[in-house]
């Protein structure tokens, strides 16, 4: 298990952001401004987004 946080700003759907960075939806949890959110949310660009890996990469 590994939780690696990437904090970034992005405008658009979270699912698009995940695609852009090559993350599988099943392997990450997304937090926006410190709260766990559904990946189907849309970001306005001024939020603090954390992408947390839920599985270890080997």
């Amino acid at each position: 298990m590994l939780i690696a946080k990437i904090i970034m700003k992005f405008k658009g759907k979270i699912t698009e952001l995940l695609k852009k960075i090559g993350a599988n939806r099943e392997e990450v949890v997304v937090k926006v401004n410190g709260k766990v959110v559904p990946e189907i949310c849309e970001l306005e660009g001024d939020e603090e987004v954390e992408i947390i890996r839920v599985v270890a990469d080997v």
């Binding site: 926006v32 401004n33 709260k35 959110v37 949310c41 849309e42 970001l43 939020e47």
Partner: peptide, 13 residues
């Protein structure tokens, strides 16, 4: 953020 509502209540998902 444009939030999505809970399918069971009106709170943020």
């Amino acid at each position: 953020m444009f939030s999505v509502k809970c399918s069971l209540c009106k709170k943020d998902g």
